[in-house]
Write a protein that binds this DNA or RNA. Sequence first.
DNA 1: CATATATGATACCTTTTGGTATTATGTCAA
DNA 2: TTGACATAATACCAAAAGGTATCATATATG
Lengths: 125, 125
Amino acid sequence: MINDISTDRFSNSNLMQSQGAFRALSDPTRRGILMLLSEQDMTIGDVSEHFDITRAAVKKHLNILEEGALISVHTSGRERINKLEPLGLKSAVDWLNYFNQFWDEKLSAMLQAVENEQKNQKEGK
Amino acid sequence: MINDISTDRFSNSNLMQSQGAFRALSDPTRRGILMLLSEQDMTIGDVSEHFDITRAAVKKHLNILEEGALISVHTSGRERINKLEPLGLKSAVDWLNYFNQFWDEKLSAMLQAVENEQKNQKEGK
DNA sequence: CATATATGATACCTTTTGGTATTATGTCAA
DNA sequence: TTGACATAATACCAAAAGGTATCATATATG
């Protein structure tokens, strides 16, 4: 039962809060767009020039990025400027950071193993 | 042109290397499974009990997690034990960490804004 | 051996996704 | 106002994703 998860300390809202961001991040074109926008704000026209797909397709990607709060858009005359919103990545980063502890554990285990090996060598085992 | 990106310093391989991980992370059920496996290794049967979908569906999720190198599987008799591989998250975390600089920038800007505000208040503006 | 158990694999269905082509809307500039 | 430009929106399509049901395979165990 999924209930198991919602009553869990991993409050499920956590799982769902980051959904928009993770969804947006799952496509390589969208990650490429985020990279581009990290260098400078851009119109759809600007962004489209960097990819081999139609503007309509780029627009869809931008919509999904906006839904995930990874970019913001503001109008300037007939242009619409797309801007990176790095804080939008926070929910995803936060979720992933939970696993740092296991990564660290593994790292500790590796270091421990090396230490033991050195010790054993010293003792001539 | 997509070429623009491949000749970019964001070597595109970076974009693609993390694809398996980002793809696996895009589904909330799969993120839930990772949470579960962070507490203990589990068979498919164990995992399935925590979700309201068939074992076949869970198996598909496990396959995708394995493809993304986020879990590993080893056989023990007729059971197959699924194990979290936290290091598999590294490629995704690394990609995201690139954006820390912008996050920090924004944070710096916010702190600066607060400082200025306080200064202005002091000066009675 | 025979049977129950644990899992894997496949065919099939529906929805979502990534894409195109086309049409519509809004704004700048002569 | 009229045409060029920048973008939005919609209809449509093929493929991928998430799911179920069913069948196949391997392994404990009486």
